[in-house]
Amino acid sequence: MRTRYATPQRVASGIAVAALLAFPLSSCGSDDDSSVSGSSSSSSSSASSSAAPKPVAVVEALSGQNTAIALDKGFTDALASLKLTPGVEGDAKLTDGSLVFPITGGNVSVFEPGSVPNYVVGQIQHEGSGLSLSAGDTTVTLTNLNVDPGVSRVYGDVAVNGETAVTSAYLFELDGSTLKPLQTQGDTAILEGTQVKISDVAAPLLNETFKTDAVKPGLLVGTATITVNTQ
């Protein structure tokens, strides 16, 4: 049976709708906090402010180094079963089973695990690089990846056959439960162990594009190692 592919216009429409539905939630506390009485709330806020934990590492302007994703065998097997060919865009590299994206900007603060709900916060930008997935005459590119560890998401720009479909779409979710403690080596800091998974927005879009239902939300893409310069 001949495989049919979605048109770029149809995919663009689907991505735009899904991106709107994926508007990120705030990482603030729950609304229940506001039910505390005024005097108690004020006192608690003052105490929390004075005892606020300090980060163990802060990089105000990221420059250099990279994010490497060691691809999971389950992901590469899934691509093979769908006859999808992975590739790289721009300055990205595919080396020894890992996708490597140069870091081009952003900022990051790292706290002691357990001291705050999200102990890695900031933005890690990868402008001018990305990955591609191709089958037949259809190629989807995911570029300009922006890692937002505060909300455990990765955003990026999507194009189909060279035509921009949407920018800053929610592409991957991050699972930091396997993240190892911060490592330092000279003037570099290394965060290793975060799992990268297909988001519930990207999965249906890929299925629509490549006419399949095999791409599931939460599919493990691989494990990330982020290496940044500290000076």
Rank of each mutant, 00 (worst) to 15 (best):
S37E: 10
N146T: 14
K54G: 12
Q65E: 13
A12C: 01
S46Q: 13
P204S: 00
G186T: 00
V58F: 11
K93C: 01
D175P: 10
Q125P: 05
T95W: 02
S45R: 14
V221T: 07
N161M: 00
A203Q: 03
D33T: 13
S46I: 12
S37V: 10
N207V: 05
G128I: 01
N229H: 11
L219E: 07
V11D: 09
E112C: 06
K73T: 11
A203F: 01
V158L: 11
P113D: 05
K211N: 15
S37G: 13
G38M: 15
P102F: 08
L25H: 14
D31W: 01
E192F: 07
A57S: 14
T104N: 05
V140E: 03
I190N: 04
D175A: 02
K216G: 06
V147N: 12
G156A: 03
E89I: 09
T167D: 10
P53R: 05
D77K: 10
I124W: 00
E89P: 02
S48F: 15
T167P: 07
L131K: 04
T138L: 13
N161G: 01
T139M: 03
A214H: 08
T138D: 04
L219S: 10
L71R: 00
E112V: 11
S129Q: 08
G90E: 01
G106H: 01
A12D: 08
F101S: 04
C28P: 05
R2E: 13
V121N: 10
G106F: 01
L99D: 06
V154N: 02
E208M: 14
K83Y: 08
L142H: 05
S45N: 12
S13Q: 10
A51E: 15
P117F: 02
L82A: 04
S109L: 00
G218T: 07
G114K: 00
P102R: 09
V201A: 13
G222A: 03
D31E: 14
V140T: 08
L62P: 03
L84R: 05
T104F: 06
A6I: 08
E208K: 14
N66D: 14
L71G: 01
T184N: 11
I15N: 02
S45G: 12
S49I: 10
S44R: 15
L25N: 15
G64V: 03
L142S: 01
S48R: 15
G128W: 06
